[in-house]
Amino acid sequence: MTTTLIVNGTRHEIDLPPDVPLLWVLRDEIGLTGTKFGCGVAACGACTVHIDGVAQRSCQVALGDVNGPVTTIDTSRPEPALAALQAAWVDHQVAQCGYCQSGQIMQAADLLATTPYPTDAQIDEAMQGNLCRCGTYPRIRAAIHDAATKLGEA
């Protein structure tokens, strides 16, 4: 039995047991490696994707439970908030090793979707599930504020 998934607008028929986490379907089966494995236990946020527009930890969502279209960092047609964040990430030179950043950006995109001008406290609240061992937090914060401002001006 196969499972149908829509990822970044493309339809995939997946022939894997339904308990395989979405993360490992994306990475190993579909070959979309932008979404990262960090912990497997919902403790780091590296695997964050959007399901039906909402940020989810893909290491915690079983293939059989995916109930909407999936967007990952690899999308070639990012919606405006995601595109603005990606640009701000480059402007602010956020990444060090960069491994956590796919998840950071997907989480931040979810934040801006609900909170167009987040305060520092709202950024703390939304982003504290996303670990960065390189310690890029100050620039992540600055880039989120900047992307929010630019989106507001657009």
């Binding site: 190993d28 979309l32 932008g34 990606q86 480059v90």
Partner: peptide, 29 residues
């Protein structure tokens, strides 16, 4: 001067290939 790091764009759009992202034909896990 501060130059833009060459690796920033790929690290913002998921296309940077870390070791864990290595892909080869017929690869097993």
């Amino acid at each position: 001067k501060s130059v833009p790091r060459l690796d920033q764009p790929a690290k913002a759009n998921g296309s940077a290939r870390f070791g864990i992202d290595t892909k080869l034909d017929g690869m097993r896990f």
